[in-house]
């Protein structure tokens, strides 16, 4: 999968759904390589860029976070419709992860009750409906259970080297940086993955 056959400069984006933004932090850990990236492609939409509307004709997008509320749902559908390659970026997007911890509690109503009343120190109260607060979906879902996903980049967060590897592959860089097998706890590449042995 590569978007480099295009004659024009590739247009890439990053999106932030229900997640902690840690994946984006890791993205920013690419440091000076971000200048390389700017040479290779246009970043047309991102929470770290001031663009209001997700544009048309995006070549590739990194989607951080799970689909947890109606805003997420609306955005991811738009993203899917306007993008060639969608990458689930980080564990929340890939599995639901911590954001999906609420799912065993069932209905959103139960979730709110648990969070704002049962766990409240004093005088808990469920925040009243407000048009600015998007409604929770019945269940938090990983991105691929809502729209088709083309690649999966797991990790909490995925470390910068792996993000770079994925982007280089997408952009058709000839000699991408090498990444070894990954130790998820260390967040760094190590060859050894066998547990306790």
């Amino acid at each position: 999968m590569s978007v480099s056959e295009n004659k024009r400069r590739p247009r890439i984006a990053t999106v932030w759904l229900a997640g902690c933004s840690g994946c984006h932090m890791s993205f920013l850990d690419l440091d000076e390589w971000l200048f390389e990236l700017a040479k290779l492609a246009d970043v047309v939409y991102s929470p770290v860029a001031d663009v209001k509307e997700y544009p048309e004709n995006v070549d590739a997008v990194l989607v951080e976070g799970a689909v947890a509320n109606e805003d997420n749902l609306e955005l991811i559908r738009k993203v899917r419709a306007r993008t060639k390659a969608v990458v689930s970026f980080g564990d929340c997007a890939v599995t639901g992860n911590v954001t999906a911890l609420r799912n065993p509690l069932g209905d959103p109503e139960n979730v709110l009750k648990r969070a704002y009343i049962e766990e409240a120190n004093t005088g808990g109260r469920i925040p009243s409906d407000h048009p600015l607060v998007p409604k929770l979906l019945p269940k938090v879902l990983p991105v691929h259970q809502v729209v088709k996903v083309d690649a999966f980049l797991w990790g909490c967060p995925p470390d910068a080297a792996r993000i770079r590897a994925v982007l280089e592959k997408l952009l058709g860089v000839e000699k991408p940086a090498e990444v070894d097998a990954i130790n998820p706890a260390a967040g760094q590449e190590t060859a050894k993955t066998k547990d306790g042995e």
């Binding site: 564990d91 599995t95 992860n97 911590v98 999906a100 911890l101 065993p104 909490c156 130790n183 998820p184 706890a185 260390a186 993955t193 066998k194 547990d195 306790g196």
Partner: peptide, 17 residues
């Protein structure tokens, strides 16, 4: 509910490996 990033065995888990 296997939530690796918050699991005590993250990185030392045979299922994950």
């Amino acid at each position: 509910n296997h939530i690796c990033p918050v699991c005590v065995a993250n990185g030392h888990c045979e299922l994950q490996s």
